[in-house]
Design a protein around this nucleic acid. Structure first.
Lengths: 237, 237
DNA sequence: TACTGCAATATTGTATACAATGGACAGTTT
DNA sequence: AAACTGTCCATTGTATACAATATTGCAGTA
């Protein structure tokens, strides 16, 4: 989900553009709308709390209200949208406390994931992780920010998958998305120096050092939490 | 939506009965259907893998297909239903591996929850937990199975809530539901002696012994896992 | 000014209608 | 017999229509 999400839009998100690619695809409209809406929310194109009327979205997508309704119901379960019966839908709000709770839980789960990954990853997966480590180190050395951003994202998913627990993977995906969302609604985060921590975790996993991997991964997320706290304070001022 | 619609049809699982209560309520039909369907699946009234056609359900509920569709979309996100575009919906399947993963994760999260609860619960919550403990002990002593079953359920929720992390509460609710679902699709589980373990966990939480609470809670779920494994083997024979 | 009542409007909730797809089955061809 | 093909039927996907509810604006009153 990377390619041509070009920022060629004015103030309102240009759904028609993202729309064209889908026409001939085989997924149904409601799924496409769900994905587009989810991405729009997570990237901050819709502000938190902003009202989402069915007719408004339907017109923006040039579809009927039905697929929009289904998408909104799905996003509600995911926690990105808040629906009040007979009143309508809004982009969900995250309180400061909730942000803390997200980070707290994510730290625990990331640690758990790294622990499992270190214990369980097959030789094949180990090779893949080593490859990811090399790529990241190279990008870090040459300061290739675009590649690094991409690798940072894949890193978390790879660790989760290597842990071999599908439900843990799902939960972490949800929490990762929320973290992304938090950052999208705050002043630019400082993601530099992030890879160093990722590299250390990868090395521990590859070395099958579950205890170290777990501690490093947990601390890594806690660092992210501190970064968010810093950015939040800055925003308050 | 008058209340007299109750005695219409009774060929399908008796939704009409559950339906009557809802009429005057203020939640929308799609939500009511979601809840009813969820309960039906979790309690095993629909077998895993069973096909769920929109018209079939719509007729059973005596509504149009729209609310049913929305409910199915929601239940898909929750993992209880599996939807294939243009083919339809089925009650989801759980492989043996997935059952193991659910238990594994639930054990970790229950441990985490108990740890947090022991650390964080206020005096007021502590009193509530003590009350729950007393009630349970009494029901256990008098072998009041109905009450015990009820208390067993509330126990897990109370611990989770006392942990003061909303997202952890949500994840555990999902995993608890899945556990319930697993049992519903297997020969009768042996829930006796269950309270003893709950009581020990409660005592540790009340005593603010986070480490002990965590270990006991984790082990408790692992015991449930063993019970499931036993029941599964029995079923295979 | 502040407030109540009420009509007008906006929006959601649900039903119905139609289009498109997938699967089963019979008949044909090789 | 096996593979192919076209047709019918069941079902899903989407649009439109209508009903129910919430919100807004404003006149009128104290």
């Amino acid at each position: 989900m990377t390619d041509e999400q070009a920022e060629n839009d004015q103030d309102k998100p240009d759904f028609a553009a993202a729309w064209a690619d889908i026409g001939s695809s085989h997924k149904s409209i409601n799924m496409a709308i769900t994905e587009t809406l989810r991405a729009a929310i997570l990237s901050g194109k819709f502000k938190t709390g902003e009202r989402l009327t069915e007719v408004g979205l339907a017109k923006a997508f040039d579809v009927s209200r039905n697929p929009v309704r289904e998408a909104l119901r799905v996003l509600e379960v995911e926690g990105l949208v808040e629906i009040n019966p007979r009143k309508g839908a809004r982009v969900a709000l995250l309180t400061v406390d909730e942000v803390q709770e997200i980070i707290e839980l994510r730290a625990e789960l990331e640690g758990m994931s790294a622990k499992y990954a270190a214990r369980r990853c097959s030789d094949e997966v180990r090779v893949n992780l080593q490859h990811l480590l090399n790529e990241g180190n190279r990008a870090d050395a040459t300061n290739d920010v675009a590649v690094l951003a991409e690798l940072n994202n894949t890193f978390h998913n790879q660790i989760a998958v290597a842990g071999k627990n599908r439900f843990l993977v799902g939960f972490m995906k949800a929490l990762n998305e929320k973290t992304q969302w938090i950052f999208a609604n705050r002043p630019e985060p400082n993601m530099a120096g992030n890879w160093k921590e990722h590299a250390a975790i990868l090395e521990a996993v590859i070395a099958a050092d579950d205890e170290l991997a777990s501690v490093l991964a947990k601390r890594h997320v806690e660092d992210i939490g501190k970064e968010i706290a810093r950015a939040t304070e800055e925003q308050e001022r």
